[in-house]
Design a binder for these strands. Structure first.
Length: 232
DNA sequence: AATGGAGGCAACCGCGAGCTG
DNA sequence: GCAGCTCGCGGTTGCCTCCAT
């Protein structure tokens, strides 16, 4: 398959968006809808690629995007969802109306990650060091799929809040997940783990497909499995 | 007041999935 | 079934701001 050339080939603009560009994009979409993103910038008269327009719209210009600090509830939701889903930012964002995956991802990396793993602070000696993306993806498979368990080597985690009033300690194995997120299984099963949804290791989809497992049982099963593999 | 490092955030890149002809 | 295209996602980068010295 041949990749469609992106922006740079056509001398299109990159970098931060100006207020003028924003207003052009907003007014075009409000009038015509976004339709085909690739064709949009040309029609709207923007020197940007469609990808850039889509990103700008979905992350910042959409009217329903919520700006500002994350609430305590939102933080806790992110932490819990991340513990369950790993770096599935879009799935986590689906649980937080008005928040975008990019925003959540940034928030996680800049605030929550450190708070949850103060000792495992990302190697800071050379933060801009280039990493081979391919290699990186392969190496971080475990982290992506069971970050909580890898990071803490225990099926527990603590949420440290600024005033420490909401410190929590969860046991995923013992607590009822639905207690915290009654509607979560809807996302988990309909969006994320529906037929063949997650098959990087070649087994997940298959096992999740087992109709005899209740949702909670299945979650428990996978958490136990991940916990065990983390101790190997 | 100048400067250098660290942190935060907006934006880009590359890949895979899904759709269509 | 295949090729080409678009879209969405997650990882990464680069710039800007803030703060300590």
């Amino acid at each position: 398959m041949v990749r469609a050339p992106c922006c740079e080939a056509m001398g299109l603009k990159k970098g931060p968006w100006t207020p003028e560009e924003d207003s052009i994009l907003v007014s075009y979409i409000q009038t015509h809808g976004h339709g085909n993103w690739r064709a949009l910038p040309k029609k709207a008269g923007l020197l940007r690629c469609g990808k850039s327009c889509r990103l700008r719209w979905t992350n910042y210009l959409r009217p329903d995007v919520k700006r500002g600090d994350f609430s305590k509830e939102e933080e806790e939701t992110i932490i819990y969802m991340h513990a369950m889903l790993g770096n599935r930012w879009s799935a986590i964002a689906a649980k937080l109306p008005g928040r975008t995956d990019n925003e959540i991802k940034n928030f996680w990396h800049t605030h929550l990650k450190k708070r949850l793993n103060p000792n495992q602070d990302i190697k800071k000696s050379n933060p801009r060091e280039k990493v081979n993306p391919k290699e990186h993806r392969e190496n971080t498979f475990e982290e992506q799929n069971s970050p909580l368990l890898i990071q803490n080597e225990s099926p527990f985690f603590e949420i440290k809040t600024e005033n420490n009033t909401a410190d929590m300690k969860h046991s995923f194995i013992n607590d009822s997940f639905e207690e915290y997120f009654p509607e979560f299984d809807e996302i988990l099963w309909s969006e994320e783990f529906a037929v063949g949804g997650e098959e990087e290791d070649g087994s997940m989809g298959q096992s999740f497909g087992q109709p005899s497992l209740r949702n909670e049982d299945a979650i428990t099963f996978w958490l136990k499995l991940l916990a065990e593999s983390g101790n190997l």
